[in-house]
Amino acid sequence: MVTVNQQRVPRKRTYLLCSPERFAVEYAINPWMDVTKPVDVELAVKQWNRLRETLVVLGHEVHLLTPEAGLPDMVFAANGAFMVDGTVYGARFKHEQRAPEAALHRAFYESQGWRFIAAGETNEGEGDFVYLPEAYGGLILAGHGFRTELPAHAEAQEAFGRPVVSLHLVDPRFYHLDVALAAIDDGNVAYHPGAFSAASQKVLAQLFPDAVLADDSDALAFGLNLVSDGANVVLNGDATRLAGKLKAAGYTPVPVELSEMRKGGGSVKCCIAELRH
């Protein structure tokens, strides 16, 4: 049963998800993908439905993107764009296998009437951008090193008029920011220091002295690939130590099982784009 922690106040969120009915591992573009290990699509859909239902039970609004044949990674809806205050900065994928997803995300956002800014630089949406509305008046954290290119950070800053802090990812297992760091409320984060360069670790320590730190095992279990409403933290059930740290900090961990999505190198957050409109 989902419960709401009384020590922290959740904020209703609006999310975009895409069913994994066409999900498969047909190529390898990150260290987690193994084409010799087939996806159990029926189980993937069952696990994804449980995730979607969890978000609804927690009081959040869920929009759905229609999966397309030939695009097996569309289930990872977070990568298609990054949205702040009704403005959408579109994705421009690094790998050609995922490039067509960008147009489908753009069509969705434009159909809603939101302002859409096409990317000139390589970036993978919320995979490498995190927004904290209550940190320093509104702060964007941006990852680079494997997928999103550093010039995209400047492009995002111009798009949103918000300060962007660049963070250098150095461990290929944490190829996106959202597998190494997550917003746990509107002003604080959880992260794994080892995923970042020494300089970026210093920046994070200065910006977030009260951050929740994940150890290597929980980070490798995709524990940081989480979604939080400021009170309830939906995360991979295998990240037990991180769940304990979050609980001690006053949050309510809500574990889910997404073993099939992990075969593609993602978990909870990879499946969810936040629509901040």
Rank of each mutant, 00 (worst) to 15 (best):
residue 7 Q to H: 14
residue 208 F to P: 03
residue 55 L to Q: 08
residue 75 V to C: 13
residue 24 A to Q: 10
residue 213 L to M: 11
residue 215 D to F: 06
residue 249 A to F: 00
residue 141 L to F: 03
residue 41 V to K: 15
residue 94 K to Q: 07
residue 151 P to W: 00
residue 223 G to W: 12
residue 21 E to R: 14
residue 243 A to Y: 08
residue 173 R to D: 15
residue 22 R to C: 05
residue 240 T to R: 15
residue 223 G to V: 04
residue 82 F to M: 02
residue 277 H to N: 15
residue 15 Y to G: 08
residue 266 G to C: 07
residue 264 G to E: 00
residue 214 A to Q: 04
residue 269 K to S: 07
residue 216 D to N: 08
residue 40 D to Q: 07
residue 114 W to C: 08
residue 225 N to R: 13
residue 176 H to E: 05
residue 147 R to F: 00
residue 277 H to M: 14
residue 101 E to N: 12
residue 235 L to H: 12
residue 125 G to L: 11
residue 274 E to C: 02
residue 18 C to R: 04
residue 4 V to N: 12
residue 188 N to S: 00
residue 119 A to L: 04
residue 203 V to P: 09
residue 211 A to P: 01
residue 207 L to M: 01
residue 33 M to P: 01
residue 26 E to F: 03
residue 250 G to Q: 13
residue 210 D to P: 05
residue 6 Q to D: 10
residue 69 A to C: 10
residue 117 I to T: 07
residue 248 A to R: 14
residue 129 F to G: 09
residue 41 V to H: 07
residue 275 L to M: 09
residue 270 C to G: 07
residue 5 N to Y: 11
residue 271 C to G: 06
residue 260 E to L: 11
residue 268 V to K: 15
residue 153 H to V: 11
residue 122 T to A: 06
residue 141 L to P: 05
residue 78 A to G: 01
residue 94 K to Y: 09
residue 42 E to H: 12
residue 86 G to R: 05
residue 14 T to A: 08
residue 231 A to R: 05
residue 76 F to L: 06
residue 113 G to S: 08
residue 33 M to R: 06
residue 175 Y to L: 02
residue 229 D to S: 01
residue 16 L to D: 09
residue 20 P to T: 00
